[in-house]
Each structure stands twice: as structure tokens, then as C-alpha cells.
């Protein structure tokens, strides 16, 4: 963070965290696709859904490669990569739900899958609370819609409204988690800004100390030299008085540098005592 402006450092840290979240999203999605391919292949065989999952898995690999190769990352790139992974999940889930119903007609597996997606979204959505909330709402809505449509034609129609209720609860918890992450992120940003500002002040204080230390000896020479001159050349008293006043102003400036140098050290000491 050395040498960076506070906002720039906070922004860079936010992009870094979002980048890790997007990488984790891609990695978890890749793992979920591979597991789904394996489960469905064992239970049903190959299908259109399997091909689409392979495509999505390849998209996840591509996203991971793209995110790792970018040295100068921007938040827009990270968010676009995240959305490129997340948005295809919505249509994939329609196909997967129909496949799952062939294995488990009670809809429990479908609801559980949507709950995992919603919670994962809450854990990993980079940066924006609104983006995460929109995705949570979209996936929850899709789950409830599928539950209504698919359950009507299956044994799931007999299982009360438990699935829908747990889905709504998962969505609510996910929104709470998103809100908590948003607040934690804001706090971290403020902390980073404060740390950068403190580092800047400490550098300024160190420079002030050096300037003051180097100025004091020449000031001492001037102070004593003008005094010696005023004794030797009393007829130049008006001129020497002006010089003395100028020296006095420099002495005051030097003592101001001294005070500004002490302030951050005091503040750091107080901060450390808090912890």
C-alpha cells in the first residue's frame, strides 16, 4: 500500500477480494458440474443436460484461466466473469431439476440444490449487495416456480409447502449474509483508507523530523552569528533586527514541524494501546 492514495488502495484491495471470490465461484461451479455429470450419468445416462454441463464446466475453466492471466484486474472484468459463470446456471437448473426428479420425485434434491446455489451466491458474489440480492432473488424465484410447475405433476405435490418454506428461509438467510458481507467490506475499505492515511502521515512526520533536525544547527549559527554582529556593528542594528525577526520566524516554523512530527506517533501509540 506504500505510496498509494487511500481510495486507490481501498479499490485495489476490493478488486483483489472480488477476484478471489470469482475464482472460488468458478472452481466450485466446476466441481458442481463434474459431480452432477457423474451422478446423472450413473442414474440416467447421457443427455442434453450433460452436454450443457460439460459446456458450463469448460466455461468455468476458461473463466479461471482468464482471471489468473489478468495482471491488472478491474472490478468490471471480475464482475463480468462472475456473471458469465452464474447466469447460465439458471437455465441449466431447469434441465437438471427435471433430471433430478427422475431420481428423486419428492423435489427435495431440487430444493436442496437451489438452496446451495443461493447460499453460495451469498458467500461469493463480489462487491455489490444489489447484484448478490438480485441473483438470490432470481434463483429463489426460479426454485419456487419450478417447485410449483414440476411438483404439480409429481409425487412432490403431496409434500406440503415445506420445500417452498425452506427455500424462502434460505433466501432470507442469504440476504442477511449478503448484508453482513457488505458491511464487513465497507469496514475493511475504511480500515484500508485509514491505514494508508496513517502511513502517509507517518512519512510526512519522518520528513518533518529530518527537515527540523537539519535546520536547527544552521539556525543556531544564524542566531548566534547575528548576535555577535550586533555587538560588533551596532550601526547596523535595524538591519540585524530584521534578520533576527526572520530567524525567529524560522525557529517558530521549525517548532511547528516538531509538533507535526509528534502527532502520528502519539496516535499510533494510542491505537496500539486499544488492542
Amino acid at each position: 500500500m506504500r505510496g498509494r492514495r487511500p481510495d486507490e488502495a481501498a479499490r485495489a484491495a476490493a478488486v483483489d477480494v472480488a477476484w478471489r471470490d470469482a475464482i472460488a465461484t468458478a472452481a466450485i461451479s466446476l466441481l458442481a458440474n463434474l459431480l452432477s455429470i457423474w451422478v446423472i450419468a450413473a442414474a440416467i445416462g447421457w443427455s442434453l443436460g450433460q452436454s450443457l454441463r460439460v459446456a458450463h464446466a469448460m466455461l468455468c475453466v476458461g473463466a479461471i484461466g482468464y482471471l489468473f492471466r489478468r495482471r491488472r484486474r478491474t472490478m468490471a472484468e471480475v464482475v463480468i466473469s462472475f456473471l458469465a459463470i452464474m447466469l447460465p446456471i439458471a437455465p441449466l437448473m431447469v434441465i437438471w431439476s427435471e433430471e433430478l426428479l427422475q431420481i428423486d420425485p419428492t423435489m427435495h434434491a431440487v430444493i436442496a440444490a437451489f438452496q446451495m446455489i443461493v447460499m453460495g451466491t451469498a458467500f461469493l458474489t463480489p462487491t455489490s449487495f444489489l447484484l448478490g440480492a438480485a441473483l438470490v432473488a432470481a434463483f429463489s424465484g426460479e426454485a419456487l416456480l419450478l417447485w410449483q410447475v414440476l411438483a404439480a405433476d409429481s409425487a412432490a405435490a403431496e409434500i406440503s409447502s415445506l420445500g417452498g418454506a425452506t427455500m424462502v428461509l434460505s433466501a432470507a438467510i442469504s440476504l442477511g449474509l449478503l448484508l453482513h458481507r457488505s458491511r464487513t467490506r465497507d469496514l475493511a475499505q475504511r480500515l484500508i483508507r485509514a491505514e494508508v492515511e496513517l502511513a502517509t502521515l507517518e512519512r510526512f512526520a519522518a520528513i518533518s523530523d529530518q527537515v527540523r533536525d537539519r535546520v536547527n544547527t544552521p539556525l543556531q549559527v544564524l542566531e548566534l552569528g547575528v548576535n555577535a554582529l550586533s555587538r560588533r556593528v551596532p550601526e547596523e542594528a535595524p538591519l540585524l533586527d530584521r534578520m533576527r525577526r526572520a530567524i525567529e520566524r524560522l525557529v517558530q516554523l521549525s517548532s511547528r514541524l516538531s509538533r507535526s512530527g509528534a502527532a502520528p506517533a502519539r496516535r499510533r501509540s494510542r491505537d496500539q494501546s486499544m488492542w
Binding site: D209, R212, D213, V215, N216, A262
Partner: peptide, 9 residues
């Protein structure tokens, strides 16, 4: 002692 350095030196 005569010093031009600050009291934290």
C-alpha cells in the same frame, strides 16, 4: 547536551 534532534530520537 545541545541537540537539534527531536525528543523521540
Amino acid at each position: 547536551f545541545l541537540t537539534g534532534h527531536g525528543s523521540t530520537d
